[in-house]
């Protein structure tokens, strides 16, 4: 409404030249936007956002019923509009600026972000993403009785690990330090299932990358040792495991 009026003012008054820079400044001054008020509004909106997140910490349960994410996005857009219209005074400025900014955000930026989300994360993966792993995968929990965290050091080169056999206790926090002494990148990949069920996990590229080591560097990473058993570990750079770059870690 306010915007409408200011525009009418600018066209109705023949002495008023909205293109003129000095006149434009005057128009902003005349409008006397209450900048402190805008700040208070921004602060209140932020406080609402934060409390929504604190009260409904996840997308499940009560949070889902009130449409937590759409609400948060709505509040964000409201805040963004306040900043754009008042602090960047697009509300009082030439519409040409709004067209450029609108083209950036509305015509190209936003559609790109939305289509990327749909194109790259198909909905069927949603459950997986919430769990943070494959469906049904159980993450081992650290067991304080299993002993202090242990650091296992090994070297990787073409195409071997040295040592090729490692050991840890179930539930123990394990840190891996993979030193790459070869001439191409190597990594340390471990499947979630033991050798008994998965003798050659590299065939299906089963497992998570624990550490990766580019040439002449030390790749670090860690995991909580899973249930007892012998687990294979390998390098999943194509061809490396097949050439013999794998080993066994025994969990007791």
């Amino acid at each position: 409404m306010e915007q409408e009026q200011s525009f009418q003012r600018s066209t109705a008054d023949p002495h008023h030249d909205p293109g003129d820079f000095v006149a434009e400044e005057k128009r902003i001054q005349q409008a006397k936007p209450n900048y402190v008020g805008v700040f208070v509004a921004l602060a209140i909106l932020t406080a609402i956002e934060i409390s929504i997140t604190l009260i409904f910490p996840s997308e499940e349960g009560a949070g889902a019923t009130i449409g937590r994410v759409p609400l948060l996005l709505f509040l964000t857009v409201a805040k963004a509009l306040l900043v754009i219209l008042y602090y960047m005074h697009l509300k009082f400025d030439s519409r040409l600026y709004s067209y450029f900014f609108g083209a950036g955000v509305l015509a190209f930026g936003l559609p790109f972000v939305i289509s990327m989300i749909f194109l790259m994360s198909p909905p069927q993966l949603a459950s997986q993403r919430h769990e943070g792993g494959a469906p049904g995968e159980q993450r081992p929990t650290p067991n304080p009785n299993a002993g202090p965290p242990v650091t296992l050091k090994l070297q990787g080169f073409e195409f071997e690990f040295d040592p090729g056999a490692l050991a840890a206790n179930s539930g123990q926090v394990v840190r891996i330090e993979l030193q790459n002494t070869g001439s191409v990148e190597h990594n340390f990949v471990m499947p979630s299932e033991p050798v008994a069920t998965l003798p050659e996990p590299w065939v299906t590229n089963n497992g998570t990358v624990i550490a990766k080591a580019p040439v002449a560097s030390v790749g670090k990473g860690g995991f909580t040792a899973p249930a007892p058993g012998d687990y294979a570990f390998y390098c999943n750079v194509p061809g490396h495991a097949l050439a013999g770059m794998h080993g066994i870690i025994s969990i007791k």
Partner: peptide, 23 residues
């Protein structure tokens, strides 16, 4: 810097490059 944006072996996605590049 050893990130893995485009490395499928470390949960990254080579498709991301294609989207960003062709956009």
């Amino acid at each position: 810097f050893g990130t893995s944006f485009y490395l499928a072996s470390a949960q990254g996605d080579p498709m991301l490059w294609q989207h960003l590049f062709w956009f």
